[in-house]
Amino acid sequence: MRKCIGIILLIIIAWGILTSLQTMPFGVSRAKVANHYINNGKDETGAANIVTSVVINYRAFDTLGEVTVLFLSAIGLGAVLATIKTREKRDTEKASLILSTGCRFLFPPIILFGAYIFIHGHLTPGGGFQGGAIIASAFLLMYLGCHGEKRLNDRCSTFSESLGGLAFVIIGLIGLAVGTHYFLNNFMPLGKFNTLLSAGVIPIIYIAIGFKVGAELSKIIDLLMEES
């Protein structure tokens, strides 16, 4: 009975969404904001990757918020888990030599790849979030493959997440203080298009985000792994 009602209600909601979607022609560019990004993004931000120019420049404030959300979830998880003390040791089988060696071998390249992704965020697809996630997956690999051998350094991760966030905010505030007085303004010279040292503050922010996201996601994994 309850299920039936639920399904009927969901069908009504789906009907609502569909009627809305019908008014949007698929694939046709109607968004003038998007057009603006495509046409002027290169000149205004100096980033070759338009997505990055949107994420770190046009809508940098959202990104700051999202970084905070991620930060929050790590902190929140920590706060909740800190109060529940039901740690029990479980018997775990040690990983085989091949597996652990393989993991250890893969760890540096994955880290390197993540770093590459966020350093080149303004040039190639990807950026701080993706790079950070990749770095976190490297840690995940270590946790899975080499059980309990290498743990995330707590102090180190705290440093990188705090400094990452702070760097973002401080760059924003510098933008407010100098030049045209706008928060998160791209106050640095845009440089030569399509080179590593271009696009003003974008690479700096992306590096900060990369460190921060990497540290936070790894921390979440660390917290959960430690508990289980």
Binding site: F71, F159, S162, G165, V169, L176
Partner: peptide, 20 residues
């Protein structure tokens, strides 16, 4: 700037783990 109302507490929140 009204943005300070958001930026400063955010910055402080990021700072807390370091100060901790």
């Amino acid at each position: 700037d009204p943005v300070l109302l958001i930026a400063i507490p955010l910055g402080l929140a990021f700072l807390i783990p370091l100060l901790g």
